[in-house]
Nucleic acid binder design. Structure first.
Length: 645
RNA sequence: GCCGGGGUAGCUCAGGGGUAGAGCAGCUGAUUCGUAAUCAGCAGGUCGUGAGUUCAAAUCUCAUCCCCGGCUCCA
């Protein structure tokens, strides 16, 4: 009998009879590994543990602790849910059912059946019942004709559509219990591995993600090998909800929405405005240092401005419609972008190559008509303020300028403690070139320059096709919110198109006219979205320098209100934002209220403090810190109160 | 925009054909207090909005607006 050499992740090799299964190997290594093994990677391909290995190979056995193990687990769970659905709702048609980052979903066509949240519990129960049957997932290779015949008989049109894109020889079925699905795999050994099931929600999803197609019902779920892990996950979700910026925004009185003002149009309350203005000041400082010139432009612009820029053609019909004047020939648009205005600033006078780069910065408030279903707290709104700037530079300066902007973005992220961001190079979709304007050569050049600049700063980037702006590729900085949803914050974009459309030029050293290149950039992205993500990032416990209220002075009783007032006045004279709680309440109550408001420092003053001219310092979330004189308190924490440089 | 789920007091929520409820917040009074909720009283809602069914609608029907979870979109 022939043998195969199996190389393990630690580099050691073992010999097994040819046709050995992943599970056999796991058993030969340890009982525990065999018990926890979910899938196996064989020469880079993730497979079922049951598949025989016929040739020498490097392997890695995946457990719940590996992404490859979890994915197999959740993929199998999707099949289990499908089996349950088919048992409960005969005739249900299946789309796709993949594992996702946290769990899995299956897109199904339930015909006329209205499937609501109430049905989820029923399906959950059925899934548990089927899991207990501990059926094996069996893999079977089928021919294309056989597969089509099967799904034709079963009446599953979506599967047949999927099969059309597959070629003979690569088609496999997986069966467990009474359920058979077209599937590439891999799967866990049996359904019995699934011990805990939670179906989270139902949502509509267009077949194949195309809004022209039929909308299927998408059921999201998550499963675990242990009930305890599910309980922990659900608890984690509860905790995440407490960080939701919409909830904290209301509780901390940062912002609000009003139906009367209009959906997606945030109202910044006094405390939110402090926070926002501190961020603006921080950025202004950094930009002055980096050689930017602040400018201000109006909130509306003549329609022709956007016809020139191309925005009107691209977005005009889906946007806020033009504003009319008594003179019917005039039309203005609420500005959806600041760049056209800035182009016109560039054009106010002839520019020399010696003037470049010119960096025009503006906290520009823009308005975009987002679809109603898209609005989401502060992260997706219809009116927002970008920390926008446009850099007009010579072609030979693009990379250097781009790198400087990356540094600025990283400076912001570092100052605010964002460590878990992804840098995404957003490229054209080569299959849909009509979505973009401009020549191929310029696009290629811009895409190359972005990648080079990112590499030069050592950024780990992910390139995503089809995410570019219509006028150019971007480098986007993505951050996740409390519930794991990804949002774009900072963005840097190279643009050769607008300079062309606006006929921007400069006189070169050769005394000839040349076209500058534009770099659009916004390190925050928008103040609104940035604040939203910041709130969730720090759960409302802002860095002290950003905190709307930095210190609460809490007199023990009315008798010490005068001393407390002198303390708060001294703080305010040092530009420290404080409140005085001189209500007729007990100190425990005042402390509790200040804690709930997440005020970083509480200064408690009573008999002793008034006599000794001290303050009793209490830190939010950390408790009593002892008494010091007020000047000592200010000196000790001054760094925290001041804006970082 | 599409699919599903929701809108009851400022907030969190109960009530599901028969005169609108609680806790917290608010106001008034008492209390003058040492590190996360003092006590008492009062006030507060055309039950998102508009139609319809009914003797009677917060409750049932329809429409509409807004919110929530996704999908599509995102200059």
């Amino acid at each position: 009998m022939s043998e195969v050499k199996i190389t393990l992740p630690d580099g050691s090799a073992r010999t097994y009879p040819a046709g050995v299964s992943g599970m056999d190997i796991a058993k030969s290594i340890s009982e525990g590994l065999a018990r926890n093994a979910l899938s196996i990677e064989v020469d880079g391909e993730i497979r079922d543990l049951s598949r025989p290995i016929e040739q020498d190979a490097s392997i890695r056995i995946f457990t719940w602790n590996d992404k490859g193990g979890k994915y197999a687990f959740w993929h199998s769970s999707a099949h289990l849910m499908a089996e349950a659905l088919e048992a409960l709702y005969p005739g249900v048609k299946f789309g796709i059912g993949p594992p996702i980052e946290n769990g899995f979903y299956y897109d199904v066509d339930l015909g006329d059946l209205a499937f609501g949240e109430d049905d989820l519990a029923k399906v959950e129960a059925k899934m548990i019942e089927l899991a207990r049957q501990n059926n094996s997932f069996r893999r079977r290779e089928v021919s294309k004709s056989e597969a089509i015949e099967y799904f034709t008989k079963k009446g599953d049109p979506y599967k047949i559509e999927l099969l059309k894109d597959l070629t003979d020889g690569s088609i496999t079925f997986y069966e467990q219990g009474n359920f058979t699905d077209l599937c590439r795999g891999p799967h866990i050994p049996t359904t019995g591995y699934v011990k805990a099931v939670k179906l989270l929600n139902v949502a509509g999803a267009y077949w194949r993600g195309n809004e022209k197609n039929k909308m299927l019902t998408r059921i999201y779920g998550i499963t675990f090998p242990k009930q305890k892990e599910l309980d922990e996950y659900l608890l984690m979700l509860e905790e995440a909800k407490k960080r939701d910026h919409r909830k904290l925004g209301r509780e901390l009185e940062l912002f609000a929405f009003s139906e009367k003002v209009g959906m997606g149009l945030p109202l910044w309350l006094p405390k939110g405005t402090v926070l926002r203005e501190r961020l603006e000041q921080f950025m202004r400082k950094a930009q002055v240092k980096a050689g930017y010139d602040p400018v201000v432009t109006p909130h509306i612009g003549s329609k022709s401005l956007y016809v020139t820029s191309g925005h009107y053609e691209k977005y005009g019909k889906d946007s806020f419609q033009p504003i009319h004047t008594p003179d019917v020939t005039e039309e203005f648009l609420l500005k959806p972008m600041n760049c056209p205005h800035h182009c016109e600033i560039y054009k106010v006078k002839p520019r020399s190559y010696k003037d470049l780069p010119i960096r025009l910065a503006e906290f520009g408030t823009v308005y975009r008509y987002e679809q109603s279903g898209e609005l989401h707290g502060l992260t997706r709104v219809r009116g927002f303020t970008q920390d926008d700037a446009h850099i007009f530079c010579r072609p030979d300066q693009v990379k250097e300028e781009f790198i400087k902007v990356i540094d600025l973005v990283l400076h912001v992220f570092t100052a605010l403690g964002f460590e878990n961001y992804t840098a995404q190079v957003s490229l054209r979709d080569p299959a849909n070139k009509e979505k973009y304007i401009g020549e191929d050569a310029l696009w290629d050049r811009a895409e190359r320059e972005i990648q080079e600049a990112a590499d030069e700063r050592g950024l780990k980037t992910v390139a995503v096709k089809g995410e570019a702006a219509f006028y150019g590729p971007k480098l986007d900085f993505m951050v996740k919110d409390a519930l794991g949803r990804s949002w774009q914050l900072g963005t840097i974009q190279v643009d050769y198109q607008l300079p062309q459309r606006f006929e921007l030029e400069y006189v070169g050293s050769d005394n000839q006219k040349h076209q500058p290149v534009m770099i659009h950039r916004a390190p925050f992205g928008s103040l609104e979205r940035f604040v939203a993500v910041l709130i969730e990032h720090c759960a409302g416990n802002f860095p002290v320098w950003l905190s709307p209220e930095q210190v609460a002075v809490l007199p023990i009783s009315e008798r010490f209100n005068d001393y407390a007032a002198s303390v708060i006045n001294e703080l305010r004279s040092r530009d420290i934002r404080g409140i005085l709680d001189d209500r007729d309440e007990k100190i425990g109550r005042k402390i509790r209220d200040a804690e709930v408001k997440k005020i970083p420092y509480m200064l408690i003053v009573g008999e002793k403090e008034a006599q000794e001219q001290k303050v009793a310092v209490r830190k939010h979330g950390a408790g009593d810190q002892g008494s010091v004189s007020l000047p000592d308190f200010i000196a000790t924490f001054n760094k925290e109160f001041a804006m970082p440089v």
